[in-house]
């Protein structure tokens, strides 16, 4: 029985780089893995922020990000249909203020924390089931204090 995911054909990651509300972007990425069809064409936008991580259980936190947020981490691997591509999962843009997100107690927290420590403008964020006021405040404050909201206007 095969226990490793061997999908290695890259389908591309246009959604991750598109200008689109982040909840919709992640929703469409999740939907895209239900088919083997390729992605449609979408122009890449000039990124102002980065979201690294898995699709969160509580999508409401994603609405705090600007539409010009680029998606990284396992969500990007999902869109690319290469879920075991650690190199792609570990990729980030050091020039972009980025939130490295993981669900609390998920094994991804170790990678998220490690990559956040390597990134010059990062915030490691974990959250259990729902995004409470402190989680939302951390996202808002990080984006605001990093000048993301000004850059996205």
């Amino acid at each position: 029985m095969t226990t490793r995911n061997i999908e290695a054909t890259p389908f591309g990651t246009p959604l991750c780089k598109a200008e689109l509300a982040l909840p919709e972007k992640i929703e469409r990425i999740c939907t895209s893995i239900q088919t083997t069809a390729g992605h449609g064409q979408l122009p890449a936008c000039q990124a102002t922020a980065g979201f690294w991580g898995v699709p969160p259980r509580d999508f409401s936190m994603l609405s705090l990000f600007p539409d010009t947020t680029h998606v990284y981490g396992w969500s990007r691997c999902m869109e690319n249909k290469t879920p075991a591509d650690l190199e792609l999962e570990s990729h980030f843009n050091p020039a972009l203020p980025t939130i490295f997100f993981a669900q609390s107690f998920c094994a991804k927290t170790a990678l998220a924390k490690h990559l956040a420590s390597q990134h010059p403008r990062a915030l490691f964020l974990d959250c259990d089931i729902t995004a409470g006021s402190s989680v939302r405040a951390k996202i808002q404050a990080f984006l605001e204090l990093s000048g993301v909201y000004d850059a996205s206007c």
Partner: peptide, 10 residues
């Protein structure tokens, strides 16, 4: 520049 932050309400 901001390098890190945390809020422990729990």
């Amino acid at each position: 520049r901001l390098a890190d932050m945390g809020w422990n309400a729990e």
